[in-house]
Design a protein around this nucleic acid. Sequence first.
DNA 1: TATGAATGAGCATTCATTCAT
DNA 2: AATGAATGAATGCTCATTCAT
Lengths: 199, 199, 199, 199
Amino acid sequence: MASESRTFVEEARRAQIIGCAIDVLADEGYAQATMARIAKQAKISPGAISYHFGGKAPLIDAVVSDVARMATDMMVPRILAQPTATEGLKAYVEANLDFMRQHRKPLLALMEIITHAPRESGGPGPYDRQAEIAIRDLEKVLEWGQRTGEFRDFDRHTMAVALRGVIDAVAEHLIPHPDWDFDLLARELVTTLTLATRR
Amino acid sequence: MASESRTFVEEARRAQIIGCAIDVLADEGYAQATMARIAKQAKISPGAISYHFGGKAPLIDAVVSDVARMATDMMVPRILAQPTATEGLKAYVEANLDFMRQHRKPLLALMEIITHAPRESGGPGPYDRQAEIAIRDLEKVLEWGQRTGEFRDFDRHTMAVALRGVIDAVAEHLIPHPDWDFDLLARELVTTLTLATRR
Amino acid sequence: MASESRTFVEEARRAQIIGCAIDVLADEGYAQATMARIAKQAKISPGAISYHFGGKAPLIDAVVSDVARMATDMMVPRILAQPTATEGLKAYVEANLDFMRQHRKPLLALMEIITHAPRESGGPGPYDRQAEIAIRDLEKVLEWGQRTGEFRDFDRHTMAVALRGVIDAVAEHLIPHPDWDFDLLARELVTTLTLATRR
Amino acid sequence: MASESRTFVEEARRAQIIGCAIDVLADEGYAQATMARIAKQAKISPGAISYHFGGKAPLIDAVVSDVARMATDMMVPRILAQPTATEGLKAYVEANLDFMRQHRKPLLALMEIITHAPRESGGPGPYDRQAEIAIRDLEKVLEWGQRTGEFRDFDRHTMAVALRGVIDAVAEHLIPHPDWDFDLLARELVTTLTLATRR
DNA sequence: TATGAATGAGCATTCATTCAT
DNA sequence: AATGAATGAATGCTCATTCAT
């Protein structure tokens, strides 16, 4: 790993800067998240960020990787620990909601990046691969349930895209409505999802 | 109406510029949709856009209004024409998918604007109201079905947010996958939705 | 005169445009007095102004000439009608104050132009000549009084510049304080001036 | 003080930029005093000015403050040092003339700003308060003389406006006539003023 | 004679990046 | 390892002027 070649203090500095970038992204939005603003938050100079990351794009990449790793670390073991696909899918939804609840800022930052990062002309967005991977992972859970006969015979890709859409929509809706009832939300979504997927 | 006070040629020019803005937004993304780029697309000078719209923000507003009106005109009558809420909800999904198919570019442009338009610090995005209205409208359809007893007793708001999320996710997924099978998509979504909402 | 070569309607159009330019200049200031704004005031197109005057600079020139002519027509005969220089100087001040009172808008417009019109690099302002002429005229009145022995032996140029300065300052001060007592003003200035100039 | 929080080099850069702004304002006028022109004068980039001042308006503010402070520092102690109001008023005029002589460019720059800064529609100019303060200060000197019985019973406000007008007119007149005889000027103005104000 | 659409130069401003220290 | 001053390109916008109709 690249981190092996970095000193401890170097790694700490990077983590601090990433944290400040997340704060600014979540609190003030992608447009305000300039190098100068992030540097001010970290109480360092703009040049220091370029020094540690090599530019803005690599910093944003690092934020995405960081948050994605946090999410993966938190959610994947929890889902895989379930005995059945039905419970695994339930755990998938609940783990996502818990992540929103417990890591609201990093998630907001990630969403700011994914939705606002400019894409190249005619091409896909720079973080579309991230979304593709999430879809692919979800499809595996769905395949698990179909293999065991717990789930009916829906098209896995369509269902995966739809479910990711639901979760992302909930996350997005939570930005202007942070007081939304998480428990009601979890119950409703799990019920709905069960009805939609069970044989 | 405001359009009454504009001449025919003026209206045509505006429509042309809106069309070019849609093209650039859909093809190259919000970040590339500068006045200069849109003007180049329309083969006019940047100043001419300001002349007709008064600035970039009013132009973007005009694009949003234009596409929103197109969508409303196409979808609302179709949904209201259904005899039952079940069929109304089915029509809702199908109408949305048809709009994606028939007006791919305008829809992409609209989504670019909604997701990329910078929001004020801590505040909502400028077009979040548009999304709120869409949720509200969908809730009415859901209420219809619950009143007639066609739908089970789910939380309407959660379901509306979820369903809008599914549709937006499908639209977003269609950007890098324009060859996705619409018919399969429609069948799967309607089936899933029926299972998820029926009593 | 140039006006001899213009038709009656042409002259009327010019007068109308000059009047509208005066309105905009006086009411909204030099910075807001764009061709488009003046054209809107006159309910014609911007092109029409260029057609009649040949550009913005000639229009501004015309405004200056127009107001200067109004002022001259009103004030010069009144001053020359006085039997003594002392009364002539008194009439000079009173005529200026009366002009401010009776033609507030044209005067404001003129002052906007004189103070705000851009000057060429290193050179004098475009309407400095106008001011020089006013000084020169005033010097003649002062010379009259010195010749007759009514006035003491001050430096005419200094006194003329000073007196013009007083009058211009009063006019300028009247912009934010339109309710200033004209009669008090006239009495005080005449008294002061008498004391300052008499033998 | 704000300057305490700036480094020495930072303060020096600001002073240099203010100096260049003064040069451009005085030599070429307000209209030519663009960020680009001032930057060129300072042999830096336009962005560097924004970096140090935050924009054009704060730069102009800084110029005004700087010159106003220079003027105050030079003139106020000199006036207050006089034993009588008569001599105080004489010192007022002479100090103003000396300031014109010794700080011609900064004064010209200040006048360019005061007269040319665009005012809001119907409202006062942004630096009108500066002028009001000058009037108020002058009124205090006049009141001093009336209280001691040195001055006659004129209206102080009228006299203050008039005297400021004289001084400003002299300054303005010096722009196209830099060779005007300062000593003659001072003698004439002081004599005139003495006659105009003495009991 | 007049329109009004369109131009194009000029404006202040923002910001990622660079570099001497 | 870090600073922070400075750059330079890009953006939206304004406005006098032009010109086909």
